[in-house]
Design a protein around this nucleic acid. Structure first.
Lengths: 233, 233
DNA sequence: GTAAAATTAGACACTATTGTCTAAAACGTC
DNA sequence: GACGTTTTAGACAATAGTGTCTAATTTTAC
């Protein structure tokens, strides 16, 4: 008499992605359509079509459009945060070949957080629906971008003592690092395009060079660290 | 018998703003509502209400919703470009007190181009409707942001010879300058808020310090240029 | 004051969308 | 194969928005 659990359904937590195939395909399709059309422009029928699912199935899983929207946002946010911190874990921890290692880290960060579907979705939704769902995105702000600064600042602090870097304010340095590695790409991304891998390599490499030039200790400035590569790229 | 021209109507060019009061109030209200609700979420009735104008008047001036939208975008683009280049004209042309002058310039740039209504509108519309009206925004991209890099690069080149700056690539330096002065503000702006003047001052000041540290000639690094202020902010 | 033009409110047809309901079909488990 | 669950297609009412039309009203120029 125990209630039969149909399949591997309901893996655990409410926002977990390990749900049935239909749910996943609905979430993915909805993310796509919401991103393209905005909340009010997205129609349930369109989402159903794109998910290869009947409209009624969507209403079965998510009571109404708004419920679906919030579930999609939550889903993307979780994934984006996971990606973010998994990249942060690759921050270089020794100062050998600092420039190249930092550049590789920067490229991974940009590629996996700013330039992918989830990044695009979040940027758009925060901007267009942020004021309508303050609590929803505020949570992301604190857990995502809000923590990146702090985390990256800590990593820079560690690096700063190993390499010969002169930093007053690690949080500021972190924000400037992020800004620099996005400098060449933000216009591309703003227009909905995806930069090529080459663009990405060059952009992050140049950004790291500038960042290091601004933060190496004066004594090191004439050293070999970044002088040679300065005109290489 | 000559056709009577009702008033100062039809000042000249098609996108000129010098039209009757109704037109202006429609354009302003529409910009507001389109920005808040997106194209498909904005209703003509809402715009009419906000403009204190009847719906029919809107249809008289702009045949349909799409026509109105394009007129609004064009109007904002024109204004934004004008503001942009008027700020560019204030770029410091002597190297005395470079840091402060650059910071003031940066603050004006951010305040008048990124942090105002028009900037917010354009960012949102490019992002959400850019793919639907490629030609429309592509024009802005070329005339606005596209030219800023070039113009700013030229200004930096001039400055570079006067002050003691080491720049290989002026375009790159221009993009990095813009990225740095927005570093601390972009998260605030992304969430639809307007930074306070104090936030703005601090952000641009720090950005300029970092920018100069990255670009002063090595020989100057131990000089007096930016060393003193480095820990002032 | 008069006449042309602009503006208004309201009704209207038309379309699109949301969310509900129903009965049939497909699916998975025993 | 039988049973419970999920999914499906389609009809449906309710709502909201677009764009048109008309007739009344206001504004403006002279």
């Amino acid at each position: 008499m125990k209630k039969r659990i149909p399949s591997a359904r309901k893996a655990s937590g409410h926002t977990q992605r390990g749900q049935c195939a239909k749910r996943i395909s609905i979430l993915d399709a909805a993310a796509e359509v919401f991103c393209r059309e905005g909340f009010s422009g997205a129609s349930i029928d369109e989402i159903a079509m794109e998910a290869c699912v009947s409209r009624q199935t969507i209403y079965n899983h998510y009571r109404e459009k708004e419920t679906l929207f919030m579930a999609v946002v939550q889903d993307v946010m979780d994934r984006a945060n996971a990606a973010l911190f998994s990249v942060l874990a690759t921050f270089p921890n020794n100062a050998d070949d600092l420039e190249n290692e930092l550049a590789a880290f920067a490229a991974a960060l940009v590629r996996n957080c700013s330039c992918n579907h989830d990044g695009k979705f979040l940027r758009r939704m925060v901007q267009t629906e942020g004021e309508r769902y303050p609590h929803l995105f505020e949570a992301w702000r604190k857990q995502g971008p809000g923590r990146v600064d702090a985390a990256l600042a800590a990593l820079l602090a560690r690096l700063s003592s190993q390499a010969n870097l002169a930093m007053d304010d690690f949080d500021l340095a972190a924000r400037q690092f992020l800004a620099l590695i996005n400098a060449d790409l933000q216009m591309i991304v703003l227009f909905g395009e995806t930069p090529t891998d080459e663009q990405l390599q060059i952009a992050t490499c140049k950004a790291v060079q500038t960042f290091l030039r601004a933060y190496v200790k004066p004594s090191e400035k004439t050293g070999a660290t970044s002088e040679k590569r300065l005109r290489a790229g």
